[in-house]
Design a protein around this nucleic acid. Structure first.
Lengths: 135, 135
DNA sequence: CGGGCAAGTGAGACTGAGTATCATCTCGAT
DNA sequence: ATCGAGATGATACTCAGTCTCACTTGCCCG
């Protein structure tokens, strides 16, 4: 019991494939539609469960869109970073941790709070959408 | 004064009062419960609408908790800032914009993206909860 | 190379947030 | 006081996400 490993099952493979087929961010609903459209026999609940698992494994990260929707982005595990999301095409890029660490230390000193975690999301226009528009 | 196109109505006053009675963040559901508990005749939809309005007027701001819930915090309008939310008691403090501006410029130069907006939320323990726990 | 069983699955019921509709009400400019 | 745009609230609805439970399947071990 309680074994450390996760099973590599067929449905999970399918969900991973759906994720890979997506560019940029996507919602759980998007994947559910994809699965339905392609008539893969994957259940709704299973997709939610797989997304949860992938997030735990840090190959996906959950972000909050300005609209309030919950979306996921693929990302590299074990590596602190943030995301820029393109308002136009939805594409996502990882960016290094900016100088946030030291700023947070300052805040802790100044306010007496202990800052445990943070969430930073950037939104804007990706280079290719800028090019398209500045034409 | 409540003009500029908005009416100062009784239900809105009630919602404002409920907001004021709350310390720290709260969800729409919290207010709906409060209203029901105190048997104020305010409708569900009206509460959502009032929160939306207050957010527009920038006396409330919507934040995303780590759990994914949507919450609101009271804040001062016309002033760029971020929030630290206490994981323990839910209390919220505003903090000045850290050195994010320059970091963002760097990113723009480095990556070719144009960063339009961002969202930063900090989570941790407030001074009084730290004191309680370090005892 | 099976056998056994916990982990995983899927159908569908359920919950709870948020939105839409619409008949009715009310704020506040005149 | 009048009156219409704007606001309200009851209700229905949609949609994300969770839960349950009988059934299946990956995979550890003999």
């Amino acid at each position: 019991m309680g074994r450390a490993g996760y099973r590599l099952t067929e449905p999970r493979r399918v969900v991973a494939e759906l994720v890979a087929a997506r560019a940029g961010h996507f919602t759980a609903g998007d994947l559910i539609e994809d699965a339905a459209a392609r008539d893969l026999g994957v259940g709704r609940a299973t997709i939610f469960r797989a997304l949860e698992l992938f997030t735990e494994l840090e190959v996906l990260e959950r972000i909050d869109l300005p609209t309030g929707d919950h979306a996921y982005v693929p990302c590299l595990p074990q590596h602190h970073h943030h995301h820029i999301v393109c308002d136009t095409c939805g594409r996502v890029t990882e960016v290094e941790d900016l100088g946030l660490g030291s700023a947070i230390e300052q805040i802790e000193e100044r306010t007496g709070w202990e800052v445990g975690s943070h969430r930073l999301e950037l939104f804007g226009r990706c280079p290719s959408c800028r090019a398209d528009q500045d034409r």
